[in-house]
Nucleic acid binder design. Structure first.
Lengths: 191, 191
DNA sequence: GTCTATAGCCGGATAGAC
DNA sequence: GTCTATCCGGCTATAGAC
């Protein structure tokens, strides 16, 4: 088992995600991707089957991790604030692991062909679980009585777009970020 | 002057923005755009000069509105919280006016060719003005001592992505939205 | 102002040599 | 596993008839 080298296939996937982040799926050509990897376009096809398959593997891999994660959090026997902090932590961890993939998930999902419906299912399921945490917190009195959809939109959008921002802030420790972002999102900024 | 009809040029720009939102600039072809307008691709060129010019007009028009708006807000002689509420209100108003253009601004700016530098200047200037409001509020003690960049990122991301969400929530009055989103972003959700 | 036709280029993907 | 050569279709934009 190789420890310090990526398989060529892995290298292609990572490079593709990076290019997709910079220009979007449609604007990245197989010639671009090949050049970034250091081979010719035709050679890519010894490792992958199509451009579309690269996209769908990148997106669905992450989407499934998020789904599994929130399923576990929802089932946990804790209070709402703890659950929300766990959701925030999950976003930060998965985004730190794979910021380019997160970009593709956010911006290029509409270019999925065969797997679009599966992606949309996962996405809806995720949003519903998130909403159920929020509704629970409002019933128990842990959360303010603000509009549920505004709250959901506002937190989820911030979390979904962390990829834009996390790579630049490498100096910020992951656990510090989790703590500070939790305060900002949950307790606000006004003194 | 026509009051109830859009000029063909206007119609093309609006339709283009809508298509750019759905699929991204690169994936929208001039044939797609022409079909959506109800003419042939070649006929578009009697009204516009290039695909690129459509994009750049859509994006820079909005970017300049934001820049002018924040310049005025920064110069106002009010407290920080009021300024932040005005920034929030500006985003909601401009996004409600032109949600599709906002999508292009957010997702397709990297496909600007000649005007990319101008766009990046406007964007940096906007972020710096926003940051100056936040720093002022921290000095005056109106804002909590949270990490400035996290605060900036979190609020700006929510505001920049309102286009994803505002069109679906037509029932929510603009002024109610301004008020509720201000509470959520500034005072948090935890009771 | 819209059309048909087409120039000229670039896209994803395959064939087959090495 | 990488290469060169190439297929074939779609792309933006233009030319010129009506």
């Amino acid at each position: 088992m190789k420890l310090n080298t990526l398989s060529r296939k892995q290298e292609i996937y990572r490079t593709a995600a990076k290019l997709f982040k910079e220009k979007g799926y449609s604007a990245v050509t197989m010639r671009d991707l090949a050049a970034a990897v250091g081979i010719k376009a035709a050679s890519l096809y010894n490792h992958i089957t199509s451009k579309q398959q690269i996209l769908s593997e990148i997106i669905l891999d992450i989407a499934e991790q998020f789904t599994e994660g929130i399923d576990a959090i929802v089932d946990r026997d804790t209070d709402t604030i703890t659950k929300l902090k766990e959701v925030i932590a999950q976003h930060i961890i998965l985004t730190t692991d794979n910021p380019y993939g997160m970009a593709a998930l956010n911006n290029d999902w509409m270019h999925l062909e065969g797997k679009l419906d599966h992606y949309l299912d996962l996405r809806t399921r995720y949003e519903n679980k998130f909403r159920s945490i929020v509704l629970e917190g409002k019933e128990s009195g842990e959360l303010k009585d603000v509009n549920t959809e505004i709250l959901l939109y506002s937190i989820l959008t911030t979390l979904r777009n962390l990829y834009l921002w996390i790579p630049k802030k490498g100096e910020l420790q992951k656990d510090v970020l989790i703590k500070e972002l939790s305060v900002t999102l949950l307790q606000g900024v006004e003194k």
